[in-house]
Simulated assay, not measured.
Amino acid sequence: MKVDSQEQAFAKLTPDVLLDAVESTGVSCSGQMLALNSYENRVYQVGLEEGSSLVAKFYRPNRWSDQAILEEHRFTLELAEQEIPVIAPIIDNDGNTLLHHQGNRFALYPCKGGRAPELDDPNHLVQLGRFIARIHLLGSTRGFEHRPNIDLDSFMHRPSAFLLEHDFIPGHLVTAYETLLADLIERIEGCYARAGSFQTIRLHGDCHPGNILWRDEGPQIVDFDDARMGPAIQDLWMFLSGDRAYMSERAADLLEGYSQFYDFNPAELHLMEALRTMRLVHYAGWLARRWYDPAFPKAFPWFDSMAFWEEHILTLREQLAKMDEPPIAW
C-alpha cells in the first residue's frame, strides 16, 4: 500500500518537537506529558510551568483541510458561546485556533476531567438527551461547507472497496463478504426509504460514551473531529444497544430529555441499525487505511487475524436481520 510521505509525519513528532510546538504559543512547558487515547490524531496532556495543564491535539496530515478543521473549531466555539458545555479550542492572541509548527498542524484545549455516563441511569440519559438536543438546535441553524455528509459512499462503498482492493479480507471469505455487502447496501437503502424525508444538520458525528465527560454538574462533550452533516439520530444511537426491549426503555429516557429542547423526527428510528451497520464497515476500512501507521498494528493486533474477519462477517449478518425488523418503539 503506497503511503504519502506527509502521512509519515507522526514518526517525526518527537517529544522535543511536540513541546517546542506548544511553547511556540508563548507558554512554558514543565516537561511533563502524557499521551491520551487517540489514534487518528496525536493528543497529549502537557504540563505547564504555571497554570493548569493543556491538551495539545496534532492533526493527521491529509485527513481534513485547514478549512474543515476551522469549521469544526467554529462550531464548538459557537456552542460554547451559547453556554453549551463543550471543550472548545483555545484562541491565541492573534485570534487563531489552528496553529502550525514545523509542518505540523495543532490546536490547544483546556484540560478537563470527568467520567463516563451511566447509561443504565435514566437521569443520565435524560440529561444527555437535553444536552445533545441543545447541540442540534444550534447545529440546525446552518450547514457545513467543508465537511462531508454521512452517506453510503463515505461509510460503505469506499471503505469496503479499500478492504477488497488491498487484500485485507482472507481469500476464502471474499465472496461471502462481497455477497453480504450487496445485501447490506440494499437493506440500508430500504431503511433510508422508510425513513423518508428528514433534516440533515451539523452533528458531533462520533457521539459515543467515550467522548462524554460526566461531571457533578452534568455532561461535557469532547472531540468534534468527526463532525459531519447527517440525521439527528446519528448522535443518539450509540447510547442505545442491547435487546429491543432494553433499547426501547433507554430511548424513551434519552428522547424524553431531547424533546424538551429540539423536535425529534421518529421516522429517523428507521435509520438506527443502518447507521450502526455503516459504522461497522467504516471502522474496518479506517483500520485498514491506517495500517501503515505503526501505532495501529500495535493497538489493534487482532485486525488482521482470521478470527476478526469471521466475527466481523457474522456481526454484519446479524445486522442484516436487524434491518428487516421494525424500528424500536418510541
Rank of each mutant, 00 (worst) to 15 (best):
K298W: 04
P266Y: 01
A284M: 04
I313R: 09
A288K: 02
D235M: 03
A299L: 00
P231R: 01
A284L: 02
S259R: 15
D253Q: 15
L280E: 10
A307N: 10
G285N: 01
S259W: 11
F261S: 14
S241Y: 14
Q220D: 09
N265A: 13
L314N: 08
L240P: 15
Y292G: 04
R276A: 12
H312R: 06
D324Y: 08
L316S: 03
S248A: 15
H270N: 11
L316G: 04
G257M: 04
E311T: 10
R290Y: 03
M229L: 14
K322V: 04
D223I: 12
E268Y: 08
L236D: 03
D235T: 11
P301W: 04
D293I: 09
V281Y: 00
F224A: 05
Q220S: 13
M247W: 11
F300I: 09
A307F: 08
Q220T: 12
L287Y: 02
D253E: 15
L271Q: 03
A295S: 09
N265P: 10
D226E: 14
L275T: 07
F296Y: 13
M229C: 08
M323T: 07
D324L: 12
A295M: 08
L320V: 09
Y258S: 04
G242Y: 10
G230Y: 08
G230S: 06
F224I: 14
H282T: 00
M247H: 13
E318C: 04
R228E: 05
A321Q: 14
G285L: 01
M272S: 10
M306I: 15
M238T: 14
R289P: 00
G230W: 06
W237H: 13
M238P: 14
H270A: 06
E318S: 05
F303A: 00
A274R: 02
F296C: 03
P294Y: 00
